[in-house]
């Protein structure tokens, strides 16, 4: 019985470690921008060269992610909970906006 209890404890401990590990890992790797309440959050994000940034639409209305030049980044219209990812391969400042609601602006700084 004692042995069994010990066994459970190890399993529970391992699970806790696994969960904790994955959360910690996400924090390092997460390059996510939420589209929430008609704004990009965060509206300014700094990432290393080669990073992939993912936008997720949390609003009830569609939004897009389009670079200011309207060429570099052009996402399709994202419905609620839909995601769009883009990998930044060169250093620089990337200003973008939502072409459906052009007053919504954001910046990805790649360095």
């Amino acid at each position: 019985m004692k042995r069994m209890f010990f066994g459970y404890s190890v399993v529970v401990l391992l699970i806790i470690l696994a969960i904790h590990g994955s959360v910690a890992n996400d924090k390092v790797m997460s390059n996510e921008v939420a589209i929430d309440n008609f704004s990009f959050r965060p509206d300014k994000l700094t990432v290393p060269v080669g990073a992939t940034v993912t936008w997720i639409n949390r609003d009830d209305v569609p939004h897009t992610v389009v670079s200011t030049d309207k060429k570099t980044i052009v996402s399709p219209a994202l419905n609620t909970d839909e995601k769009f990812s883009y990998t930044f391969t060169t250093a620089g400042t990337n200003d973008y906006f939502c072409s459906v609601h052009p007053h919504m602006k954001g910046t990805i700084i790649v360095q």
Binding site: D95, F97, P102, H103, K105
Partner: peptide, 13 residues
């Protein structure tokens, strides 16, 4: 009838 939902500019209306 006018169309004001195309040709958006970043930061514009």
């Amino acid at each position: 009838g006018l169309v004001n939902v195309l040709n958006p500019k970043a930061g514009g209306l």
